[in-house]
């Protein structure tokens, strides 16, 4: 091989490796696919009909919504079903988010945008925790609504769930389907699109013109301050209790002080799920239909909703609310370990 030919081959190999590295469509690693899907919805023009179903022990909750994503950072969601949610609208323009029911809600609250830097940072942190806590593997590829998709399986490195299956569009990295299973491998949530339309560009102005009048804003949602464990201990104006036990994989994420320093919220996450512990000086909490449980002289009220499980109890002149999508036994173990 003469020197000229060697350089040609060398240059070809360099270019080829650069193409392989830079082209996301050729990404093979499950972690890389998950990373790319993380920001996908802010990088596409998309319209679709999304269906979310949550499964509890005695009921299936279904929610159907029309979803519009427009790059960068615009999200529009309009609920079509169930009837009691029909017509509800969510508009997130990258700076703020509003939720309202046209003609009914006279005043609305402003929430932080799903795509604001404050939330993005938190989600990035959660992605790191997910990558550390879950084995991510690719399973045979499929087609969804005629589009080629990567299929990923996320299984926890410990015995506690959830297990997650994701169907990610090969071209845009948008999650087209998601299924979540509990530790017993029972389906607890499924999300999928019944209709998709990519690259549909629409005028935001036209959309706003079509919308019913947006109600006046009653209250600006202040960005909550999140604190570390040490900071929250110093800032709370009552003695805090902490769980001595957490399910494997869960770590403290942040603390918040709410309701004029009367409620402290502690958030623990494994990247895919959160466990939230609220505590405050003794209070009566109206809960609707619930069950009573008794563990070692600890009377606990319990209920299961479409979003997870809730435990409420009182101890030592304080009221605790514990919420999470983990097995009930795990939540009870956490409750019992709180000192």
């Amino acid at each position: 091989m003469n020197l000229n030919k060697f350089w040609k081959v060398f240059l070809f190999l360099i270019i080829l490796s650069l193409i392989l590295v830079s082209s996301p469509s050729l990404a093979q690693n499950g972690k890389d696919i998950l990373r790319l899907s993380f920001d996908a919805q802010s990088q596409i023009d998309f319209e679709g009909i999304r269906k979310i179903q949550t499964y509890t022990s005695d009921k299936i909750h279904s929610f159907v919504a029309k979803v519009i994503y427009q790059k960068p950072n615009f999200i529009y969601v309009e609920y079509l079903d169930p009837p009691y949610l029909k017509g509800r609208i969510i508009i997130d323009n990258g700076e703020k988010r509003i939720e309202y029911l046209p003609g009914i809600d006279k005043k609305i609250k402003i929430l932080p945008s799903f795509n604001c830097s404050w939330i993005k940072e938190k989600r990035k942190k959660a992605l790191k925790i997910t990558l550390a806590n879950f084995n991510i593997s690719k399973i045979p590829e499929e087609k969804i609504l005629g589009r080629e998709v990567y299929t990923l399986s996320l299984s926890p490195k410990n015995s506690i769930g959830p297990f997650l299956k994701l169907w990610i569009d090969k071209k845009t990295y948008l999650i087209l389907r998601k299924e979540k299973y509990n530790s017993e491998r029972e389906l607890i949530l499924s999300l999928y699109y019944t209709k998709v339309n990519f690259n549909k560009h629409f005028s935001k102005k036209e959309l706003y013109n079509k919308l019913p009048r947006i109600p006046s804003i009653s209250k600006k949602f202040p960005l909550p301050s999140s604190y570390t464990l040490q900071e929250i201990k110093a800032r709370a104006n009552f003695f805090l209790s902490f769980p001595g036990y957490l399910p494997p994989g869960y770590t403290f994420q942040e603390g918040e002080i709410m309701a004029k320093r009367k409620i402290v919220k502690l958030v623990y996450t494994n990247g895919l799920e959160v466990i939230v512990l609220f505590q405050r000086p003794s209070a009566k909490i109206a809960m609707g239909p619930h069950k009573w449980m008794n563990f070692d002289n600890l009377g606990i009220r319990f209920r299961e909703g479409p979003y997870g499980k809730t435990l409420v109890w009182n101890r030592k002149k304080k009221t605790f609310v514990l919420m999470g999508e983990v097995p009930l036994e795990e939540l009870v173990k956490i409750a019992q370990s709180i000192k």
Binding site: L85, T130, E254, L272, P306
Partner: peptide
């Protein structure tokens, strides 16, 4: 928190309530 502190959270789940 579920929506903002997990990596595959969906926006606007609060309407479920």
């Amino acid at each position: 928190s579920q929506e903002t502190l997990t990596c595959v959270g969906e926006p606007a789940t609060s309407l479920i309530l």
